[in-house]
Structure formats: structure tokens, C-alpha cells
């Protein structure tokens, strides 16, 4: 019963959602609104409590056991606590917004900006001409990079057109090939779950 229940729910809801997609009637839309949007929000809210519990226990244990980097966990716990207190205390007032604008947003931007350096180091490794594929990648990437900057057009006025052709045809053809496979794979995986063939997500075979 522990596994049959979820399988029955997946079967009924899976087929209901497939049919719902093809039915424009208001009843069908209402079904989607209640069963997907409202239920999902309700379930998510409850599970966020589990998330909060997990977050607190994970960092608490790290601090208590003085594991490596325990002070980061202490900062995480304190930051969460202070944000919650300010959020509830000021009813999401200006101070709460300042936490977001002047602490969280700059920290996120800092992480994002690291990407520039990581792209350089990854590109260096990827572009080393070790074999035919890597050489092709190096040549194509050099052409595309040059064609995307004004200097490329200055070197040869048709270079941007060559880049456009590379992106529009060979690149798009490869991407679409992957996307078609992904689309079919998604449908197959969904159907396997609906039919109960795929059960790994329940923890069982």
C-alpha cells in the first residue's frame, strides 16, 4: 500500500493532466488551477518547513561538532535568524529590502561574475588542439568570437555573415538534434512514471 498509493495517484493525475492539456473548457482550466497551482503551493509551503528543519540541523551539527568551516555555518544560521526576525519584526519593511538590495544582491552578483574567470580557464582547456574535434572547436570558436566583435568585421567585412551562418545552420542543427531527443526522452520518462514502469523516484525498483 505504501507504494501502491503514490502509483495510483501518479496514474490518475498523469492521465488527467494529459487530457487537461487538450481540453479548453473552463472546467478543465479550473481543475488545473486547483489541482496544480493551489495544491502545489500548499505542498511546497509544508515542505519548506522540512527544508528549514534540514538547513538548521545541518548547520547546527557542523557548529556543534566544530567541523571544518564551522564558522561559515554559524554565519549562515545567524544570517537566517536575523533575516527572519527583521522580516517578521518590520513586516517586510525598508530594512528587510535593504538586506536584499545591499547584501544578498551584491553577493549573488559576485558569484555570477566569477563565471567570467571560469569561462576563461575552461576555454583554455577546451581549446587546446589535442585532436581533430578539439581543433575544429578551436577554429570555430575563434571565428565566432572574432565575428561577434567590431574588430572581426574590420578584418574582413563578411566575417559576421560567416558567424551568422555557423550559428544558424551547423550549430542550430546540432542543438535541434539534441532537443528532439530530449523531447522524446521527456515524454517517455513521463509515460513510464504514469504507467508505474519507472519507480525509482519512489525509492523502490
Amino acid at each position: 500500500m505504501r507504494r501502491t498509493g503514490p502509483l495510483v495517484v501518479a496514474f490518475i493525475m498523469g492521465f488527467a493532466m494529459i487530457f487537461q492539456y487538450f481540453i479548453p473548457h473552463p472546467l478543465s482550466q479550473k481543475f488545473y488551477e486547483i489541482m496544480v497551482q493551489q495544491w502545489l503551493i500548499i505542498i511546497s509551503i509544508f515542505l519548506y518547513l522540512f527544508g528549514l528543519r534540514s538547513f538548521t540541523l545541518y548547520h547546527y551539527h557542523k557548529v556543534r561538532r566544530k567541523k571544518e568551516g564551522w564558522y561559515f555555518s554559524l554565519i549562515a544560521l545567524l544570517a537566517a535568524l536575523i533575516t527572519v526576525i527583521i522580516g517578521f519584526g518590520t513586516r517586510r519593511g525598508p530594512l528587510f529590502d535593504k538586506i536584499y538590495d545591499y547584501i544578498l544582491a551584491p553577493l549573488q552578483a559576485t558569484m555570477f561574475s566569477l563565471l567570467a574567470f571560469f569561462i576563461a580557464s575552461a576555454a583554455y582547456r577546451a581549446f587546446r588542439a589535442r585532436n581533430l574535434e578539439a581543433t575544429l572547436l578551436l577554429v570555430t570558436a575563434t571565428i565566432v568570437m572574432l565575428g561577434r566583435v567590431p574588430f572581426g568585421a574590420f578584418m574582413w567585412h563578411k566575417l559576421p555573415d560567416v558567424v551568422e551562418w555557423i550559428l544558424k545552420y551547423p550549430n542550430m542543427a546540432a542543438q535541434r538534434g539534441i532537443l528532439i531527443g530530449v523531447g522524446l526522452g521527456m515524454i517517455a520518462t513521463s509515460m513510464k512514471i504514469i504507467l508505474g514502469i519507472e519507480r525509482s523516484y519512489l525509492g523502490g525498483e
Partner: peptide, 30 residues
Amino acid sequence: IIGEELYAASAYLSQDPKLVGSLKAQDLGK
């Protein structure tokens, strides 16, 4: 593991005939 290979992983790792059968349906679809 690129694109559809991710979805094939479960069948590939478990070698469950039912899951492997579903991969053939994907191939025919393609």
C-alpha cells in the same frame, strides 16, 4: 551525459527489460 542519455540512464543502469523496452519506443519515435 548528453540530453536523452540522461533519461535513458535508469534503463541502462538497471537493465530492467520493461525500461529497456521504453528506450526502443524512443528510438522508433526518433
